[in-house]
Write a protein that binds this DNA or RNA. Sequence first.
RNA 1: UGGGAGAUCGUCCAACGGCAGGACAUGCGGCUCUGGACCGUAGAAUCGGGGUUCGAAUCCCUGUCUCCCAGCCA
Length: 559
Amino acid sequence: MSPNEPKESLDFIRTIIAADVAAGKSGYRVHTRFPPEPNGYLHIGHAKSICLNSGVAREYNGLFNLRFDDTNPVKEETEYVESIKADVRWLGAEWEDRLYFASDYFDQLYEFALKLVNDGKAYVCDLNAEEMREYRGTLTEPGKNSPYRDRSVEENLDLIERMRKGEFPDGSRTLRAKIDMAAPNLNMRDPVMYRVLHARHHRTGDKWCIYPMYDWAHGQSDSIEGITHSLCDISFEDHRPLYDWFLDQLGVHHPRQIEFARLNITYTVLSKRKLIQLVRNNQVWGWDDPRMPTLSGLRRRGYTSESVRDFCDRVGVAKRESMVDVALLEYALREDLNKRAIRVMAVLRPLKVIIDNYPEDQVEELDAINNPEDDSAGSRKIPFSREIYIERDDFMEDPPKKFFRLSPGNEVRLKHAYFITCDRVVKDDSTGEVVELHCSYDPATKSGEAQDGRKVKGTLHWVSAAHAIDAEVRLFDRLFNKENPLDDEDFAANLNPDSLEVLKGCRVEPCLADATPETYYQFLRMGYFVADVKDSAPGALVFNRSVSLRDSWAKMQKK
RNA sequence: UGGGAGAUCGUCCAACGGCAGGACAUGCGGCUCUGGACCGUAGAAUCGGGGUUCGAAUCCCUGUCUCCCAGCCA
Protein backbone atom coordinates (compact mmCIF):
# COMPACT_ATOMS: atom_id res chain seq x y z
CA MET A 1 0.00 0.00 0.00
CA SER A 2 1.19 3.48 -0.73
CA PRO A 3 -0.37 6.87 -0.04
CA ASN A 4 -1.62 6.75 -3.64
CA GLU A 5 -3.70 3.65 -3.16
CA PRO A 6 -5.10 3.90 0.34
CA LYS A 7 -6.95 1.11 2.06
CA GLU A 8 -10.44 2.04 3.14
CA SER A 9 -9.21 2.45 6.67
CA LEU A 10 -5.84 3.10 8.23
CA ASP A 11 -4.86 2.15 11.74
CA PHE A 12 -4.43 5.08 14.11
CA ILE A 13 -0.66 5.20 13.68
CA ARG A 14 -0.80 5.27 9.91
CA THR A 15 -3.48 7.92 10.18
CA ILE A 16 -1.16 10.09 12.25
CA ILE A 17 1.76 9.51 9.94
CA ALA A 18 -0.32 10.25 6.86
CA ALA A 19 -1.30 13.56 8.41
CA ASP A 20 2.30 14.36 9.38
CA VAL A 21 3.54 13.61 5.91
CA ALA A 22 0.73 15.60 4.31
CA ALA A 23 1.65 18.52 6.56
CA GLY A 24 5.23 18.32 5.41
CA LYS A 25 6.69 17.48 8.80
CA SER A 26 10.28 16.24 8.70
CA GLY A 27 10.49 17.20 5.05
CA TYR A 28 7.84 14.69 3.96
CA ARG A 29 10.07 11.86 5.14
CA VAL A 30 9.13 8.72 7.03
CA HIS A 31 11.93 7.01 8.90
CA THR A 32 11.31 4.35 11.52
CA ARG A 33 13.35 1.96 13.57
CA PHE A 34 13.16 -1.25 15.55
CA PRO A 35 15.14 -0.87 18.78
CA PRO A 36 15.60 -4.24 20.52
CA GLU A 37 17.71 -4.68 23.60
CA PRO A 38 20.05 -7.64 22.96
CA ASN A 39 19.13 -9.44 26.16
CA GLY A 40 16.97 -12.23 24.79
CA TYR A 41 15.45 -13.70 21.67
CA LEU A 42 12.75 -11.99 19.66
CA HIS A 43 9.20 -13.28 19.92
CA ILE A 44 6.08 -12.79 17.88
CA GLY A 45 5.20 -9.67 19.84
CA HIS A 46 8.37 -8.13 18.44
CA ALA A 47 7.31 -9.30 15.00
CA LYS A 48 4.27 -7.08 15.32
CA SER A 49 6.52 -4.10 15.98
CA ILE A 50 8.96 -5.01 13.23
CA CYS A 51 6.16 -5.42 10.69
CA LEU A 52 4.61 -2.14 11.74
CA ASN A 53 7.83 -0.15 11.71
CA SER A 54 9.25 -1.59 8.52
CA GLY A 55 5.85 -1.69 6.85
CA VAL A 56 5.10 1.95 7.47
CA ALA A 57 8.52 2.94 6.15
CA ARG A 58 8.04 0.88 3.01
CA GLU A 59 4.61 2.33 2.37
CA TYR A 60 6.08 5.80 2.24
CA ASN A 61 9.29 4.87 0.45
CA GLY A 62 10.94 5.72 3.72
CA LEU A 63 13.72 4.09 5.68
CA PHE A 64 13.84 1.55 8.43
CA ASN A 65 16.74 1.15 10.86
CA LEU A 66 17.69 -1.74 13.07
CA ARG A 67 19.17 -0.33 16.25
CA PHE A 68 20.27 -2.26 19.26
CA ASP A 69 19.47 -0.53 22.50
CA ASP A 70 22.57 -1.75 24.26
CA THR A 71 22.87 0.59 27.21
CA ASN A 72 23.03 -2.03 29.95
CA PRO A 73 26.20 -4.13 29.58
CA VAL A 74 25.38 -6.47 32.44
CA LYS A 75 22.40 -7.96 30.61
CA GLU A 76 23.43 -7.89 27.02
CA GLU A 77 25.29 -10.38 24.90
CA THR A 78 26.53 -10.79 21.37
CA GLU A 79 24.65 -14.08 21.00
CA TYR A 80 21.43 -12.12 21.25
CA VAL A 81 22.58 -9.57 18.70
CA GLU A 82 23.16 -12.30 16.17
CA SER A 83 19.89 -14.09 16.81
CA ILE A 84 17.96 -10.84 16.56
CA LYS A 85 19.58 -9.94 13.26
CA ALA A 86 18.74 -13.38 11.90
CA ASP A 87 15.14 -13.08 13.04
CA VAL A 88 14.59 -9.59 11.65
CA ARG A 89 16.14 -10.65 8.36
CA TRP A 90 13.96 -13.77 8.27
CA LEU A 91 10.89 -11.61 8.67
CA GLY A 92 11.96 -9.67 5.61
CA ALA A 93 12.44 -6.30 7.28
CA GLU A 94 15.17 -4.54 5.31
CA TRP A 95 17.58 -2.32 7.22
CA GLU A 96 20.09 -2.25 4.36
CA ASP A 97 23.22 -0.56 5.68
CA ARG A 98 21.49 0.98 8.66
CA LEU A 99 22.47 -1.36 11.45
CA TYR A 100 23.14 0.75 14.52
CA PHE A 101 23.85 0.46 18.19
CA ALA A 102 22.99 2.95 20.88
CA SER A 103 26.55 2.36 22.02
CA ASP A 104 27.66 3.99 18.76
CA TYR A 105 26.34 7.21 20.27
CA PHE A 106 27.93 7.06 23.70
CA ASP A 107 30.32 9.91 22.85
CA GLN A 108 27.63 12.09 21.40
CA LEU A 109 25.32 11.32 24.32
CA TYR A 110 28.04 12.40 26.71
CA GLU A 111 28.45 15.69 24.82
CA PHE A 112 24.69 16.21 25.03
CA ALA A 113 24.84 15.56 28.76
CA LEU A 114 27.58 18.13 29.20
CA LYS A 115 25.39 20.65 27.45
CA LEU A 116 22.54 20.02 29.88
CA VAL A 117 24.95 20.33 32.79
CA ASN A 118 26.26 23.60 31.40
CA ASP A 119 22.72 24.83 30.97
CA GLY A 120 22.01 24.01 34.60
CA LYS A 121 19.54 21.31 33.59
CA ALA A 122 21.39 18.30 34.92
CA TYR A 123 23.36 17.62 38.07
CA VAL A 124 25.45 14.98 39.73
CA CYS A 125 23.63 13.40 42.64
CA ASP A 126 25.31 11.51 45.48
CA LEU A 127 22.18 9.82 46.77
CA ASN A 128 22.39 6.05 46.77
CA ALA A 129 19.63 3.92 45.31
CA GLU A 130 17.74 3.57 48.54
CA GLU A 131 17.94 7.25 49.38
CA MET A 132 16.85 8.16 45.91
CA ARG A 133 13.79 6.01 46.29
CA GLU A 134 12.91 7.82 49.50
CA TYR A 135 13.38 11.21 47.92
CA ARG A 136 11.30 10.24 44.92
CA GLY A 137 8.05 10.27 46.89
CA THR A 138 5.18 7.98 45.98
CA LEU A 139 2.39 7.78 43.44
CA THR A 140 0.30 10.13 45.56
CA GLU A 141 2.94 12.19 47.33
CA PRO A 142 5.46 14.54 45.73
CA GLY A 143 9.16 13.88 46.07
CA LYS A 144 11.77 16.05 47.74
CA ASN A 145 14.66 17.78 46.08
CA SER A 146 17.98 16.04 46.34
CA PRO A 147 20.42 17.87 48.63
CA TYR A 148 22.84 17.81 45.70
CA ARG A 149 20.42 19.40 43.30
CA ASP A 150 21.90 22.89 43.47
CA ARG A 151 25.54 22.16 42.91
CA SER A 152 27.32 24.66 40.72
CA VAL A 153 27.85 24.01 37.06
CA GLU A 154 31.60 23.84 37.70
CA GLU A 155 31.24 21.23 40.41
CA ASN A 156 28.85 19.18 38.28
CA LEU A 157 31.22 19.35 35.34
CA ASP A 158 34.11 18.22 37.52
CA LEU A 159 32.10 15.39 39.06
CA ILE A 160 30.63 14.00 35.83
CA GLU A 161 34.06 14.02 34.26
CA ARG A 162 35.46 12.10 37.23
CA MET A 163 32.52 9.69 37.04
CA ARG A 164 33.43 9.07 33.46
CA LYS A 165 37.06 8.52 34.35
CA GLY A 166 36.12 5.85 36.84
CA GLU A 167 36.97 7.60 40.08
CA PHE A 168 33.78 6.50 41.81
CA PRO A 169 32.41 3.07 42.62
CA ASP A 170 29.27 1.58 41.13
CA GLY A 171 26.10 3.08 42.46
CA SER A 172 27.81 5.94 44.26
CA ARG A 173 26.68 8.77 42.03
CA THR A 174 24.33 9.49 39.15
CA LEU A 175 23.78 12.25 36.69
CA ARG A 176 20.20 13.44 36.92
CA ALA A 177 18.06 15.73 34.85
CA LYS A 178 16.83 18.71 36.86
CA ILE A 179 13.10 18.75 36.16
CA ASP A 180 10.50 18.65 38.93
CA MET A 181 10.44 16.47 42.01
CA ALA A 182 6.76 17.27 42.52
CA ALA A 183 5.71 16.21 39.02
CA PRO A 184 2.71 13.85 39.10
CA ASN A 185 4.48 11.80 36.44
CA LEU A 186 7.22 9.97 38.27
CA ASN A 187 9.40 9.89 35.20
CA MET A 188 9.81 13.63 35.48
CA ARG A 189 11.07 13.59 39.07
CA ASP A 190 14.71 14.26 38.20
CA PRO A 191 15.28 11.02 36.26
CA VAL A 192 18.69 9.39 36.20
CA MET A 193 20.60 9.91 32.97
CA TYR A 194 23.82 8.09 33.82
CA ARG A 195 24.76 5.51 36.39
CA VAL A 196 28.23 4.34 37.31
CA LEU A 197 28.77 0.80 36.14
CA HIS A 198 32.21 -0.71 35.93
CA ALA A 199 31.15 -3.38 33.48
CA ARG A 200 32.60 -4.56 30.21
CA HIS A 201 30.34 -3.69 27.30
CA HIS A 202 29.91 -6.18 24.44
CA ARG A 203 30.96 -3.52 21.95
CA THR A 204 32.73 -0.66 23.71
CA GLY A 205 34.68 -2.92 26.01
CA ASP A 206 36.12 -1.04 28.98
CA LYS A 207 35.94 2.39 27.45
CA TRP A 208 33.04 3.45 29.62
CA CYS A 209 32.21 3.03 33.25
CA ILE A 210 29.14 5.23 33.13
CA TYR A 211 26.22 4.08 31.03
CA PRO A 212 23.15 6.02 29.86
CA MET A 213 19.69 5.06 31.01
CA TYR A 214 17.01 4.13 28.49
CA ASP A 215 15.26 7.48 28.66
CA TRP A 216 18.45 9.38 28.09
CA ALA A 217 19.68 7.17 25.26
CA HIS A 218 16.56 6.38 23.34
CA GLY A 219 15.17 9.68 22.16
CA GLN A 220 18.60 11.08 21.42
CA SER A 221 19.48 8.00 19.39
CA ASP A 222 16.24 8.43 17.45
CA SER A 223 17.15 12.05 16.88
CA ILE A 224 20.69 11.32 15.73
CA GLU A 225 19.38 8.82 13.19
CA GLY A 226 16.80 11.25 11.87
CA ILE A 227 13.91 9.04 12.88
CA THR A 228 10.57 10.72 12.19
CA HIS A 229 8.23 8.39 14.03
CA SER A 230 9.33 6.44 17.06
CA LEU A 231 6.82 3.66 17.57
CA CYS A 232 6.89 1.82 20.85
CA ASP A 233 4.62 -0.07 23.15
CA ILE A 234 2.09 1.46 25.45
CA SER A 235 4.19 1.07 28.59
CA PHE A 236 6.28 4.00 27.38
CA GLU A 237 3.36 6.37 27.26
CA ASP A 238 4.41 7.84 30.62
CA HIS A 239 7.89 8.34 29.25
CA ARG A 240 6.84 10.49 26.32
CA PRO A 241 6.93 13.76 28.30
CA LEU A 242 10.53 12.96 29.23
CA TYR A 243 11.36 11.90 25.68
CA ASP A 244 10.07 15.27 24.53
CA TRP A 245 11.74 17.18 27.36
CA PHE A 246 15.26 15.98 26.56
CA LEU A 247 14.87 16.71 22.87
CA ASP A 248 13.45 20.15 23.57
CA GLN A 249 16.25 21.08 25.97
CA LEU A 250 18.81 19.97 23.43
CA GLY A 251 17.07 21.70 20.57
CA VAL A 252 17.77 18.85 18.19
CA HIS A 253 15.67 16.97 15.62
CA HIS A 254 12.55 15.85 17.42
CA PRO A 255 10.94 12.56 16.33
CA ARG A 256 7.37 11.85 17.31
CA GLN A 257 6.85 8.97 19.74
CA ILE A 258 3.62 7.04 19.28
CA GLU A 259 2.59 4.14 21.47
CA PHE A 260 0.54 1.11 20.52
CA ALA A 261 -0.73 -1.90 22.46
CA ARG A 262 1.54 -4.88 22.73
CA LEU A 263 0.47 -8.24 21.40
CA ASN A 264 -0.90 -10.94 23.65
CA ILE A 265 -1.88 -14.40 22.46
CA THR A 266 -3.97 -16.98 24.26
CA TYR A 267 -2.23 -19.95 25.85
CA THR A 268 1.21 -18.38 25.67
CA VAL A 269 3.36 -15.71 27.26
CA LEU A 270 5.06 -12.92 25.36
CA SER A 271 7.56 -11.45 27.73
CA LYS A 272 11.28 -11.81 27.41
CA ARG A 273 11.63 -12.12 31.16
CA LYS A 274 9.14 -14.97 31.31
CA LEU A 275 10.57 -16.73 28.30
CA ILE A 276 14.11 -16.55 29.59
CA GLN A 277 12.84 -18.14 32.79
CA LEU A 278 11.47 -21.12 30.84
CA VAL A 279 14.81 -21.46 29.12
CA ARG A 280 16.91 -21.18 32.28
CA ASN A 281 14.72 -23.60 34.20
CA ASN A 282 14.93 -26.10 31.35
CA GLN A 283 11.18 -26.16 31.02
CA VAL A 284 11.68 -25.98 27.27
CA TRP A 285 14.54 -27.14 25.07
CA GLY A 286 15.78 -23.63 24.55
CA TRP A 287 14.87 -20.33 22.93
CA ASP A 288 14.13 -22.14 19.69
CA ASP A 289 11.95 -24.85 21.19
CA PRO A 290 9.17 -25.34 18.63
CA ARG A 291 6.59 -24.67 21.32
CA MET A 292 8.06 -21.28 22.13
CA PRO A 293 6.48 -18.11 20.69
CA THR A 294 9.95 -16.89 19.78
CA LEU A 295 10.62 -16.28 16.11
CA SER A 296 13.34 -18.93 16.19
CA GLY A 297 10.90 -21.34 17.83
CA LEU A 298 8.16 -20.63 15.33
CA ARG A 299 10.62 -20.99 12.48
CA ARG A 300 11.83 -24.33 13.80
CA ARG A 301 8.22 -25.35 14.28
CA GLY A 302 7.64 -24.76 10.59
CA TYR A 303 6.04 -21.32 10.53
CA THR A 304 6.77 -19.40 7.37
CA SER A 305 7.77 -15.78 7.62
CA GLU A 306 4.89 -14.99 5.25
CA SER A 307 2.43 -16.48 7.68
CA VAL A 308 3.87 -14.54 10.60
CA ARG A 309 3.65 -11.31 8.64
CA ASP A 310 0.11 -12.11 7.57
CA PHE A 311 -0.78 -12.74 11.19
CA CYS A 312 0.69 -9.39 12.19
CA ASP A 313 -1.44 -7.72 9.53
CA ARG A 314 -4.54 -9.46 10.77
CA VAL A 315 -4.16 -8.56 14.43
CA GLY A 316 -4.13 -4.89 13.58
CA VAL A 317 -2.76 -1.97 15.54
CA ALA A 318 -4.61 -0.19 18.31
CA LYS A 319 -4.13 1.09 21.83
CA ARG A 320 -6.48 -1.11 23.79
CA GLU A 321 -5.13 -4.12 25.59
CA SER A 322 -6.15 -7.29 23.86
CA MET A 323 -5.67 -11.03 23.77
CA VAL A 324 -5.56 -12.53 20.31
CA ASP A 325 -6.86 -16.06 19.84
CA VAL A 326 -3.98 -18.38 19.02
CA ALA A 327 -6.34 -19.91 16.43
CA LEU A 328 -5.70 -16.85 14.29
CA LEU A 329 -1.98 -17.60 14.24
CA GLU A 330 -2.69 -21.19 13.26
CA TYR A 331 -5.09 -20.02 10.61
CA ALA A 332 -2.44 -17.77 9.07
CA LEU A 333 -0.05 -20.69 8.86
CA ARG A 334 -2.57 -23.11 7.34
CA GLU A 335 -3.58 -20.46 4.85
CA ASP A 336 -0.01 -20.08 3.63
CA LEU A 337 0.98 -23.74 3.80
CA ASN A 338 -2.16 -24.87 1.99
CA LYS A 339 -0.87 -23.05 -1.05
CA ARG A 340 2.73 -24.17 -0.89
CA ALA A 341 3.10 -27.45 1.01
CA ILE A 342 3.96 -30.65 -0.87
CA ARG A 343 1.42 -33.36 -0.08
CA VAL A 344 2.99 -36.63 0.95
CA MET A 345 1.82 -39.69 2.83
CA ALA A 346 3.10 -40.58 6.26
CA VAL A 347 1.64 -43.07 8.67
CA LEU A 348 2.18 -41.90 12.22
CA ARG A 349 0.72 -44.86 14.10
CA PRO A 350 1.10 -47.78 11.69
CA LEU A 351 -1.29 -50.70 11.34
CA LYS A 352 -0.28 -53.37 8.84
CA VAL A 353 -2.65 -54.26 6.03
CA ILE A 354 -2.12 -57.30 3.82
CA ILE A 355 -3.91 -57.25 0.52
CA ASP A 356 -4.42 -60.97 0.01
CA ASN A 357 -5.40 -60.89 -3.62
CA TYR A 358 -2.54 -58.60 -4.69
CA PRO A 359 0.34 -60.45 -6.41
CA GLU A 360 3.02 -61.36 -3.91
CA ASP A 361 6.08 -59.78 -5.51
CA GLN A 362 4.47 -57.06 -7.52
CA VAL A 363 5.35 -53.40 -7.04
CA GLU A 364 3.57 -50.67 -8.89
CA GLU A 365 4.69 -47.09 -9.30
CA LEU A 366 1.63 -44.92 -8.91
CA ASP A 367 1.23 -41.27 -9.81
CA ALA A 368 0.70 -38.87 -6.96
CA ILE A 369 0.00 -35.22 -7.40
CA ASN A 370 2.24 -33.00 -5.28
CA ASN A 371 -0.16 -30.20 -4.54
CA PRO A 372 -3.75 -29.94 -5.74
CA GLU A 373 -3.62 -26.20 -4.98
CA ASP A 374 -0.65 -25.65 -7.27
CA ASP A 375 -0.38 -27.33 -10.67
CA SER A 376 3.19 -26.20 -11.09
CA ALA A 377 4.20 -28.44 -8.18
CA GLY A 378 3.89 -31.44 -10.51
CA SER A 379 3.64 -35.04 -9.46
CA ARG A 380 5.78 -37.95 -8.31
CA LYS A 381 5.73 -41.73 -8.25
CA ILE A 382 4.98 -43.73 -5.14
CA PRO A 383 5.44 -47.49 -4.72
CA PHE A 384 2.47 -49.75 -3.98
CA SER A 385 2.71 -53.38 -2.94
CA ARG A 386 0.91 -56.21 -1.18
CA GLU A 387 1.71 -55.10 2.33
CA ILE A 388 1.04 -51.58 3.41
CA TYR A 389 0.57 -49.55 6.54
CA ILE A 390 -2.43 -47.44 7.32
CA GLU A 391 -3.17 -45.19 10.28
CA ARG A 392 -4.44 -47.09 13.32
CA ASP A 393 -7.17 -44.50 13.78
CA ASP A 394 -8.40 -45.26 10.30
CA PHE A 395 -9.68 -48.66 11.34
CA MET A 396 -12.43 -49.55 13.75
CA GLU A 397 -13.72 -53.02 14.30
CA ASP A 398 -17.02 -51.78 15.59
CA PRO A 399 -17.47 -48.36 14.02
CA PRO A 400 -20.01 -45.74 15.06
CA LYS A 401 -22.52 -44.22 12.65
CA LYS A 402 -20.61 -41.69 10.55
CA PHE A 403 -17.27 -43.51 10.52
CA PHE A 404 -16.26 -43.46 6.85
CA ARG A 405 -12.98 -45.26 7.23
CA LEU A 406 -12.02 -48.93 7.23
CA SER A 407 -14.03 -51.48 9.17
CA PRO A 408 -14.84 -55.16 8.60
CA GLY A 409 -16.67 -55.55 5.31
CA ASN A 410 -16.36 -51.89 4.44
CA GLU A 411 -14.75 -50.55 1.28
CA VAL A 412 -12.51 -47.49 1.22
CA ARG A 413 -10.12 -45.86 -1.19
CA LEU A 414 -6.37 -45.83 -0.76
CA LYS A 415 -5.30 -42.41 -1.94
CA HIS A 416 -3.82 -42.51 -5.45
CA ALA A 417 -4.27 -46.33 -5.47
CA TYR A 418 -7.14 -48.81 -5.22
CA PHE A 419 -10.35 -49.51 -3.36
CA ILE A 420 -9.87 -52.10 -0.66
CA THR A 421 -12.31 -54.01 1.50
CA CYS A 422 -11.52 -55.33 4.93
CA ASP A 423 -12.04 -59.11 5.10
CA ARG A 424 -10.41 -60.22 8.32
CA VAL A 425 -9.00 -58.79 11.52
CA VAL A 426 -6.03 -60.40 13.23
CA LYS A 427 -5.78 -59.76 16.94
CA ASP A 428 -3.29 -60.52 19.61
CA ASP A 429 -4.69 -63.43 21.59
CA SER A 430 -3.66 -62.13 24.98
CA THR A 431 -4.26 -58.40 24.64
CA GLY A 432 -7.01 -58.35 22.07
CA GLU A 433 -5.16 -55.64 20.24
CA VAL A 434 -5.62 -55.46 16.47
CA VAL A 435 -2.33 -56.58 14.96
CA GLU A 436 -3.02 -56.62 11.24
CA LEU A 437 -5.77 -56.53 8.70
CA HIS A 438 -6.39 -58.72 5.71
CA CYS A 439 -8.03 -56.95 2.83
CA SER A 440 -8.78 -57.48 -0.82
CA TYR A 441 -8.44 -54.90 -3.54
CA ASP A 442 -10.38 -54.29 -6.73
CA PRO A 443 -7.93 -54.10 -9.66
CA ALA A 444 -10.53 -52.17 -11.62
CA THR A 445 -10.24 -49.20 -9.27
CA LYS A 446 -6.65 -48.30 -10.05
CA SER A 447 -5.78 -44.67 -9.38
CA GLY A 448 -8.84 -44.43 -7.23
CA GLU A 449 -11.91 -44.47 -9.45
CA ALA A 450 -14.34 -47.34 -9.86
CA GLN A 451 -15.29 -48.24 -13.44
CA ASP A 452 -18.82 -49.06 -12.42
CA GLY A 453 -19.25 -45.69 -10.82
CA ARG A 454 -19.63 -46.90 -7.25
CA LYS A 455 -18.51 -44.50 -4.57
CA VAL A 456 -16.70 -44.88 -1.30
CA LYS A 457 -17.05 -42.46 1.58
CA GLY A 458 -13.52 -42.66 2.89
CA THR A 459 -10.07 -42.14 1.45
CA LEU A 460 -7.07 -43.23 3.49
CA HIS A 461 -3.40 -42.41 3.29
CA TRP A 462 -0.96 -45.30 3.37
CA VAL A 463 2.62 -46.33 2.72
CA SER A 464 4.06 -49.47 1.17
CA ALA A 465 5.53 -51.51 4.01
CA ALA A 466 8.58 -52.61 2.08
CA HIS A 467 9.39 -49.14 0.80
CA ALA A 468 8.48 -46.90 3.68
CA ILE A 469 11.19 -45.30 5.72
CA ASP A 470 11.33 -44.80 9.42
CA ALA A 471 10.88 -41.43 11.07
CA GLU A 472 10.29 -39.79 14.40
CA VAL A 473 7.43 -37.34 14.53
CA ARG A 474 6.81 -34.72 17.19
CA LEU A 475 3.34 -33.45 17.85
CA PHE A 476 3.11 -30.21 19.77
CA ASP A 477 0.27 -28.81 21.75
CA ARG A 478 -0.08 -25.41 23.38
CA LEU A 479 2.71 -24.72 25.88
CA PHE A 480 0.24 -23.58 28.55
CA ASN A 481 -3.12 -25.01 29.39
CA LYS A 482 -4.57 -21.75 30.60
CA GLU A 483 -5.82 -19.05 28.28
CA ASN A 484 -3.83 -16.42 30.13
CA PRO A 485 -1.01 -18.15 32.01
CA LEU A 486 -0.18 -14.86 33.72
CA ASP A 487 -3.44 -14.93 35.63
CA ASP A 488 -1.60 -16.88 38.29
CA GLU A 489 1.36 -15.65 40.31
CA ASP A 490 3.34 -18.69 39.21
CA PHE A 491 2.73 -18.78 35.49
CA ALA A 492 4.94 -21.82 35.06
CA ALA A 493 2.43 -23.86 37.04
CA ASN A 494 0.20 -23.51 34.00
CA LEU A 495 2.64 -25.26 31.72
CA ASN A 496 0.86 -27.94 29.74
CA PRO A 497 2.41 -31.31 30.68
CA ASP A 498 1.17 -32.73 27.37
CA SER A 499 2.61 -30.06 25.11
CA LEU A 500 4.89 -32.58 23.45
CA GLU A 501 4.15 -36.04 22.09
CA VAL A 502 6.96 -37.95 20.45
CA LEU A 503 6.02 -40.66 18.00
CA LYS A 504 8.68 -43.19 17.05
CA GLY A 505 8.47 -45.80 14.36
CA CYS A 506 6.40 -43.67 12.03
CA ARG A 507 6.46 -44.86 8.43
CA VAL A 508 6.82 -42.27 5.72
CA GLU A 509 6.95 -42.47 1.96
CA PRO A 510 10.37 -42.77 0.27
CA CYS A 511 10.50 -39.26 -1.18
CA LEU A 512 10.96 -37.93 2.34
CA ALA A 513 14.36 -39.58 2.64
CA ASP A 514 16.16 -36.34 1.93
CA ALA A 515 13.72 -33.94 3.54
CA THR A 516 15.30 -30.72 4.78
CA PRO A 517 13.86 -27.93 6.92
CA GLU A 518 13.53 -25.76 3.85
CA THR A 519 10.63 -27.81 2.50
CA TYR A 520 7.18 -27.56 3.96
CA TYR A 521 5.13 -30.74 3.78
CA GLN A 522 1.56 -31.65 4.32
CA PHE A 523 1.29 -35.20 5.59
CA LEU A 524 -2.02 -36.03 4.01
CA ARG A 525 -4.88 -35.83 6.52
CA MET A 526 -2.42 -35.36 9.41
CA GLY A 527 -1.24 -31.78 9.21
CA TYR A 528 1.72 -29.72 8.11
CA PHE A 529 5.20 -30.92 8.96
CA VAL A 530 8.78 -29.84 8.59
CA ALA A 531 12.07 -31.63 9.20
CA ASP A 532 13.62 -30.44 12.44
CA VAL A 533 16.53 -28.15 11.75
CA LYS A 534 18.61 -29.51 14.62
CA ASP A 535 17.62 -33.12 15.06
CA SER A 536 16.73 -34.44 11.62
CA ALA A 537 19.29 -36.08 9.37
CA PRO A 538 19.19 -38.41 6.39
CA GLY A 539 18.62 -41.88 7.78
CA ALA A 540 17.33 -40.45 11.06
CA LEU A 541 14.43 -38.29 10.10
CA VAL A 542 12.68 -36.15 12.67
CA PHE A 543 9.61 -34.15 11.75
CA ASN A 544 7.84 -31.42 13.67
CA ARG A 545 4.16 -30.92 13.21
CA SER A 546 3.76 -27.22 12.52
CA VAL A 547 0.00 -27.22 12.77
CA SER A 548 -2.70 -29.82 12.36
CA LEU A 549 -5.28 -29.77 9.62
CA ARG A 550 -8.74 -28.67 10.56
CA ASP A 551 -10.41 -31.89 11.58
CA SER A 552 -14.17 -32.00 11.40
CA TRP A 553 -14.22 -35.68 12.29
CA ALA A 554 -12.38 -35.03 15.55
CA LYS A 555 -14.73 -32.17 16.22
CA MET A 556 -17.73 -34.38 15.62
CA GLN A 557 -16.36 -37.02 17.98
CA LYS A 558 -15.97 -34.56 20.79
CA LYS A 559 -19.70 -33.93 20.82
C1' U B 1 -9.75 14.40 42.86
C1' G B 2 -1.60 11.28 42.19
C1' G B 3 -0.54 10.90 36.75
C1' G B 4 -1.36 8.42 32.15
C1' A B 5 -4.20 5.15 28.88
C1' G B 6 -8.36 2.19 27.37
C1' A B 7 -13.62 0.05 27.19
C1' U B 8 -17.68 -2.16 19.94
C1' C B 9 -19.90 -9.64 18.21
C1' G B 10 -16.72 -15.35 21.99
C1' U B 11 -11.76 -13.03 19.92
C1' C B 12 -9.15 -9.17 17.00
C1' C B 13 -9.92 -4.96 14.03
C1' A B 14 -13.23 -1.21 11.31
C1' A B 15 -17.05 2.57 11.07
C1' C B 16 -14.04 9.45 12.67
C1' G B 17 -22.34 12.98 13.43
C1' G B 18 -25.82 9.46 8.65
C1' C B 19 -28.06 1.54 7.39
C1' A B 20 -22.61 -1.00 13.28
C1' G B 21 -18.97 -3.95 8.83
C1' G B 22 -14.74 -7.55 8.03
C1' A B 23 -11.65 -11.51 9.73
C1' C B 24 -10.87 -15.59 13.15
C1' A B 25 -13.76 -18.88 16.06
C1' U B 26 -18.60 -21.43 16.30
C1' G B 27 -23.31 -23.84 14.09
C1' C B 28 -25.76 -25.67 9.66
C1' G B 29 -25.64 -27.09 4.44
C1' G B 30 -23.01 -28.19 -0.29
C1' C B 31 -18.77 -30.18 -2.76
C1' U B 32 -14.47 -33.29 -2.57
C1' C B 33 -9.57 -39.23 -4.64
C1' U B 34 -7.24 -35.29 2.06
C1' G B 35 -13.67 -35.80 7.08
C1' G B 36 -8.14 -30.87 4.15
C1' A B 37 -9.00 -26.99 0.71
C1' C B 38 -13.17 -24.65 -1.50
C1' C B 39 -18.45 -22.71 -1.79
C1' G B 40 -22.94 -21.18 0.63
C1' U B 41 -25.40 -19.85 5.12
C1' A B 42 -26.69 -18.58 10.36
C1' G B 43 -26.21 -16.65 15.13
C1' A B 44 -23.29 -13.04 17.59
C1' A B 45 -21.51 -6.40 19.93
C1' U B 46 -21.44 -0.22 20.76
C1' C B 47 -19.72 -0.63 29.57
C1' G B 48 -24.09 2.00 32.68
C1' G B 49 -26.95 6.66 33.27
C1' G B 50 -28.04 11.50 31.54
C1' G B 51 -27.57 15.37 27.69
C1' U B 52 -26.75 17.95 22.65
C1' U B 53 -28.81 16.70 17.70
C1' C B 54 -33.63 15.53 12.64
C1' G B 55 -29.90 11.75 13.61
C1' A B 56 -24.71 9.58 18.52
C1' A B 57 -20.36 3.83 18.83
C1' U B 58 -18.67 8.77 17.43
C1' C B 59 -19.75 15.17 20.67
C1' C B 60 -20.74 16.84 26.15
C1' C B 61 -21.60 15.49 31.46
C1' U B 62 -21.52 11.60 34.96
C1' G B 63 -20.66 6.85 36.89
C1' U B 64 -18.32 1.96 36.55
C1' C B 65 -14.53 -1.31 35.17
C1' U B 66 -9.56 -2.62 33.20
C1' C B 67 -4.38 -1.66 32.28
C1' C B 68 0.43 1.11 33.07
C1' C B 69 3.86 4.14 36.39
C1' A B 70 7.28 4.62 42.78
C1' G B 71 14.79 0.26 38.59
C1' C B 72 21.02 3.50 39.19
C1' C B 73 16.10 -2.33 33.67
C1' A B 74 14.42 -1.48 28.71
